[in-house]
Amino acid sequence: MRRKSFEDMRCSIAQALEVVGEWWTLLVVRDLLLGVTRFEELQERLGIARNVLTDRLRTLVDAGVVERRKYQDNPERFEYRLTEKGRDLWVVVTAMREWGDRWSAPDGPPVELVHRTCGERTTLVPTCSSCGEVLERRDLVAVPGPGGGKVPRPRS
Rank of each mutant, 00 (worst) to 15 (best):
V20G: 04
R137M: 09
P154K: 11
G64N: 01
A63E: 07
D107N: 08
V114L: 13
D8A: 08
R81C: 11
L60C: 11
L124Y: 13
D139S: 14
L17A: 07
L33P: 09
G35Q: 05
L53S: 07
G35E: 03
R97G: 04
D107V: 04
T54M: 09
V66H: 06
Y71V: 11
L140H: 04
K4P: 07
R56M: 06
R56S: 02
S156L: 12
D55Y: 03
A105F: 08
R45M: 11
G86W: 05
D107C: 03
R56Y: 05
R77T: 04
Y71G: 00
G119M: 13
D62P: 02
V29K: 01
E136T: 14
Y80I: 03
S129L: 04
A16W: 02
R153E: 15
L140F: 05
T117V: 11
L82T: 12
V36H: 13
E98W: 01
R77M: 11
A16S: 07
R10N: 06
S130T: 13
F6C: 09
A105S: 15
D55T: 07
V66F: 05
K150E: 15
V91A: 08
N74L: 05
V65S: 01
G132S: 12
E133L: 00
T127W: 00
R58I: 05
S5H: 05
E120S: 13
R137F: 12
L26V: 04
Q43I: 00
W103N: 15
A14C: 14
L32R: 11
R3S: 13
G108H: 03
D139Q: 08
R97H: 11
L34A: 11
L27M: 02
V91D: 02
G148Y: 12
V134M: 09
R81E: 10
F78W: 13
C131S: 03
T25W: 05
L140N: 02
R77L: 13
T83F: 01
G148P: 12
T127Y: 00
E112K: 15
L26F: 01
V141G: 05
Q72F: 06
V61T: 07
I48A: 01
L26E: 02
V125H: 05
G145D: 15
T122H: 06
A16Y: 01
L89E: 11
H115E: 11
A95C: 09
S130W: 10
R50C: 00
V20R: 02
L53A: 06
A95E: 14
P154R: 15
K150D: 14
A142P: 14
T117H: 08
P110W: 13
G132Q: 10
D55W: 05
V36R: 14
Q43C: 04
A95T: 13
V52L: 11
D101Y: 03
S130K: 13
F78V: 01
L34P: 00
